[in-house]
Design a protein around this nucleic acid. Structure first.
Length: 607
DNA sequence: GGCCCCACTCTATACCCGAC
DNA sequence: GTCGGGTATAGAGTGGGGCC
């Protein structure tokens, strides 16, 4: 028996989740292994873990191995976003994947406010678990409420010294511990058993009360239907609710069709058995250029618009799909022609799953409208998935391999190298926290969100946002405050370190950035309007091995943090006052033992 | 380039209220 | 009662950062 924690952010995996598991394993001889999650599912052998990662990229995935079969237990997602209907429905892949693999889905999120005027529809996050219980009898969707700070509703509260983690949330702890414990007792029926136990816990009862009060699918459809009736201009609709079908607009193929992809996945999952599901590819775009902005009234316009739209969304879809769409339109005789798209899918059958956008369209939809009033493309997704018309969910389950428990993923210990996440972790936990620096924000690669610096408020959402990896203040609050900014890298590479350095050095001279940085500190309530930001101290951090050439001499930064051979760290400080604040300038990194996934394919090449 | 995460503005409509 | 202008609200939409 072995428990595994796949993580993206070391602090979340090692300092937050692992202690919860260690506590329940007390006195049992069961190892807990920390494994860096791969970003690409292709590395994984076909089976349930591959299936999960084809749909989503978990922040944390807890699995257990029994008799060399690896079972997923809990998928956890941390989200720091402001709550809106759109965002909530976008981010449901994890729940879908968890339901399909009979495990828990814990969503750690809170009602953070934004200090800006804020758009987006109201949505009760507890409606999503409600929908899954009502429709699928799935009780594994847990919301762990991430509270905001008492004195600042714009900030999510943090675990002390763990800036990427919320304070310990009791229902999160209960769920993880019961899952692990139940699995140890029975790897066959662990999920069912643990639900029974969890339902007796107070934490769950409180949570469940909120879920039971929330509204379900019918109200959601009604809300969308009402919006549809209110709205004169169908081009402005996000959702379409018809007697026979439900549709959601596709705003773009680019950005991986985000956020539309998540919404389509969700509605397809929830309503496939009672409705047909359509995507509506938007060809009338409020803020588009002339061609895209105008109304769609005839076939000729559709052709020009489609071309323009695909060009604008460039790169989001493979060329073959773009070409086939254009070709289909050329063959159409009327604006509202209905065209069977099946032959195209059949022709490119092997390429469908190479692209997430195309995969979602082909497998989760029954068709796609080119604008709500344009050509209707339709196909038989059940046939594509290997069977003619049948229940969508079991079909998807077997197609992706959600019920296929395979042997444990092979891993190897990480020896000499470090990645960006670990470098940031080390400087925070070995230097800044021990010396009592006040940390304003940290961006771990897998856990951003806090502390954006917004230098150009007038540009609105078009303004750049910058996330220095670390923003910190010295221990003592003084009238003249120094601010420390740090950029981390993984293993040293001169070009990439210099690029990052250039970016962050702008804070030394650029007044606009300095003003924006101050604003960030005020919003975070670590300084007052009256405080002066005195000096901005810049640092870079990276890893090297013994063999790395050291001819590089950066001359503009205030400190350089280096990790050598993964094991030791050292900091060079070129600023007198900072030197006084950091008396110890080297030490052991003390990383836990961490593993990575062995790429099955490169392994095959060995033979 | 592909993917994911997140922010927050833009636009249309609903509503309100005074003037005529 | 209705017109016009101002204001509030709903919700659609899309751009940027940043990693691999």
């Amino acid at each position: 028996m072995e428990i595994r924690i796949y993580y993206e952010c070391l602090e979340q995996g090692y300092n937050y989740i692992k202690p919860i598991i260690d506590e329940i394993l007390l006195n049992r001889d069961i190892p807990v292994k920390l494994i860096k999650r791969s970003r690409k599912p292709e590395q994984l052998p076909k089976g349930v873990l591959f299936a999960i990662q084809s749909l989503t990229t978990p922040d944390i995935l807890i699995t257990a191995i029994n008799e060399n079969k690896e079972h997923p237990l809990v998928l956890i997602e941390f989200t720091e976003a402001v709550t809106t209907e759109d965002h909530e429905l976008q981010r449901t892949y994890g729940a879908v994947a968890s339901y399909l693999s009979d495990m828990y889905y814990i969503k750690v999120s809170g009602y953070k406010k934004s200090e800006k005027i804020f758009g987006g529809a109201e949505y009760n996050p507890y409606s999503t678990p409600k929908i899954l219980i009502d429709n699928f009898n799935y009780e594994g969707f847990i919301i762990a409420d991430w509270k905001t700070e008492d004195e600042n509703i714009y900030n999510l509260s943090r675990s002390s010294n763990l800036l990427g983690c919320p304070p310990l949330i009791p229902i999160l702890k209960d769920t993880i511990q019961l899952a692990v414990k139940s699995f140890i007792d029975s790897s066959e029926n662990w999920f069912k058993n643990s639900i029974v136990l969890l339902k007796k816990r107070n934490t769950y009862l409180i949570f469940r009360e909120k879920v039971d009060k929330a509204t379900g699918t019918e109200v959601l459809l009604k809300t969308w239907k009402e919006r549809e009736e209110r709205n004169e201009n169908r081009n402005n609709l996000r959702y379409f609710v018809d007697k026979k079908w439900i549709g959601a607009k596709i705003n773009r193929f680019s950005h991986a069709m985000d956020p539309d992809r998540g919404i389509l996945t969700f509605i397809s999952f929830v309503w496939s058995n009672s409705y047909e599901i359509f995507g509506i590819y938007a060809l009338v775009r409020q803020r588009g250029e002339d061609i895209l902005k105008s109304e769609l009234k005839n076939l000729k316009q559709l052709k020009t618009k489609l071309k323009a739209a695909i060009e604008k969304d460039g790169g989001g879809i493979p060329k073959w799909f773009a070409d086939e769409l254009k070709k289909v339109v050329l063959s159409a005789k009327t604006l509202n022609a209905e065209i069977n798209f099946q032959p195209v899918w059949e022709k490119y059958k092997n390429k469908i799953s190479e692209n997430k956008v195309v995969m979602t369209i082909a497998y989760f939809l029954d068709g796609m409208y080119l604008n709500h009033n344009g050509i209707k493309l339709y196909w038989d997704r059940y046939k594509l998935l290997g069977k003619s018309k049948s229940d969508f969910i079991p079909l998807m389950k077997s197609y992706f391999g959600f019920n296929n428990y395979v042997s444990a993923i092979s891993t190897e210990k990480i020896e000499m190298e470090v990645d960006e996440d670990e470098v940031t972790y080390a400087i925070v936990h070995r230097v800044l926290i021990p010396n009592k620096f006040r940390i304003v924000s940290i961006s771990y690669p897998g856990s951003q969100g806090g502390g954006a610096i917004l230098p150009d408020p007038d540009l609105g959402k078009a303004q750049p946002r910058e996330y220095p990896d670390i923003i910190a203040l010295p221990p003592e609050k003084d009238k003249n405050i120094d601010v420390i900014l740090n950029e981390s890298k993984g293993m040293f590479n001169q070009a990439s370190v210099e690029k990052d350095m250039g970016k962050i050095l702008r804070y030394k001279t650029d007044k606009k950035l300095q003003k924006a940085l101050k604003e960030t500190l005020i919003v975070a309530k670590v300084i007052d309007q009256n405080d002066n930001v005195y000096k901005i101290l810049i640092g870079v951090a990276f890893g090297v091995t013994n063999n790395t050439s050291t001819t590089w001499k950066p001359d503009k930064v205030d400190f350089i943090f280096r990790i050598v051979n993964r094991e030791n760290w050292a900091i060079g400080i070129f600023n007198q006052s900072l030197r006084e604040l950091i008396p110890t300038i080297s030490g052991k990194t003390n990383f836990p033992e961490v593993y990575k996934i062995v790429d099955e394919h490169s392994q095959q090449n060995l033979f």
